[in-house]
């Protein structure tokens, strides 16, 4: 189980933050991910305009 971001691809648009149902993401200089709040639901990966986020559920 993992949430990963590729900071070379990420454009810091905050789209992932806007769809996160558990307020687990925050846009600072990079996207900050709060493991404790994240449920690995994957909507951030779906919303991301540039394939920067990968969520694996296993």
């Amino acid at each position: 189980m993992a949430w990963n971001i590729n900071n070379n691809k990420c454009l810091r648009c905050g789209g992932c933050v806007s769809v996160c149902p558990t307020a687990a993401l925050e846009l600072r200089d990079n996207i900050i991910h709060d493991e404790k709040l994240c449920t690995l639901c994957g909507v951030c990966e779906k919303a991301c305009p540039v394939e920067a986020i990968k969520v694996t559920k296993k």
């Binding site: 149902p21 687990a24 846009l27």
Partner: peptide, 15 residues
């Protein structure tokens, strides 16, 4: 783009 709206009022955008 901010989680504050969610923390304060439970608001986020459905994907």
């Amino acid at each position: 783009e901010s989680p504050l709206r969610n923390k304060a009022l439970g608001v986020f955008s459905k994907v």
